[in-house]
């Protein structure tokens, strides 16, 4: 017969990726459910996708201005901050939603079979929709400031993909750990809070590298640590593609950050696949 399932302890399912494709309908419906539920009983509904990044932009703009961080020539501070807030907001919501997705859907996990990867991945879809809505906000701001992007904007989808990779990798890892060790949810909120300040949202990477260079030996170490933050690569990429030639990228740091993103993706998928068979037993 064409469809044969073998259930064995520890057996690597040969059909896993095929199954994932077969269950794409479920993936679509789970994402659709999350979108529907999100806007069903909310008074402002879709407005939240605008208000949240708008407030973050305002706060980050204020902090950047307060510390008088350096803005590249010809770039309004608001656009510098906005180009970073969008990917940051996407990353932080996608990361935390994906991390909590398995726990939130525990009744599904214990009652139905499907490739478990669908759950965290579908939550990221919802965050992508939010991202596109808030992107309109950025477009409006660019119109207001009469800022014309150049050809680099065409590469933006690549950096969006990088943001997805980063959020998915870390999200999968934490989601799988969260099933067994529930205290990872505290780590999630900590990472999201801390990350806002450890990532170049209110300021530019250029400024950070410049200031760290003045610190000598200690600055070198901090520079390496800073480049290890995968979100740095995402944000720098976004700024480069949106703001154009006014922004330069520090290549070694950027590449290092991208490498870390992919490292987390492989680690996340590997750990998730390794533990997912026991999810129903421990959740």
């Amino acid at each position: 017969m064409s469809y044969r399932i073998v259930i064995e302890p520890g057996a690597k399912s040969k059909n896993y990726w095929k199954d994932l494709w077969a269950y794409r309908g479920l993936f679509y419906f789970l994402a659709w459910r999350d979108v529907l539920v999100r806007y069903k009983q909310a008074a402002i509904g879709i407005g939240w996708s605008v208000i949240r990044p708008l407030l973050t932009i305002a706060a980050m703009w204020f902090i950047g201005a307060l510390f008088n961080s350096k803005v590249p020539d010809g770039v309004p501070r608001v656009l510098l901050v906005s180009a970073a807030t969008l990917p940051w907001t996407f990353f932080s919501t996608a990361f935390s939603e994906a991390s909590n997705s398995l726990i939130a859907n525990s009744n599904l996990l214990s009652k139905v079979y499907f490739p478990r990867l669908i759950v965290p991945v579908s939550t990221i879809m919802v965050c992508l929709i939010d991202f596109f809505i808030s992107f309109i906000l950025l477009a409006l701001l660019m119109v207001v400031y009469r800022y014309v992007p150049d050809w680099r904007i065409l590469l933006m989808p690549l950096f969006l993909l990088l943001a997805v990779v980063t959020a998915l990798g870390t999200g999968l890892l934490i989601a799988a750990l969260n099933v067994k060790y529930r205290d990872f949810r505290y780590i999630v909120s900590f990472i999201v809070q801390f990350g806002l300040y450890a990532s170049p949202v209110a300021f530019s990477s250029e400024d950070v590298y410049h200031k760290l260079a003045q610190l000598g030996q200690a600055g070198m170490v901090l520079k390496v640590i800073y480049s290890l933050n995968p979100v740095v690569g995402v944000i720098d990429g976004f700024r480069w593609s949106i703001l154009g030639s006014n922004v330069s990228i520090y290549m070694p740091g950027f590449l290092c950050s991208i490498a870390i993103s992919f490292f987390f993706l492989f680690l996340g998928v590997w750990y998730f696949r390794r533990t997912e068979r026991a999810f129903a037993d421990v959740i």
Binding site: I5, I7, P9, S110, Y113
Partner: peptide
């Protein structure tokens, strides 16, 4: 186990068909 929600500790199940 038969519906693949949880994994067995030993033994083997072969199913020929959609469940």
């Amino acid at each position: 186990i038969l519906s693949r929600i949880t994994e067995p500790t030993k033994g083997r199940v072969t199913i020929d068909g959609r469940v």
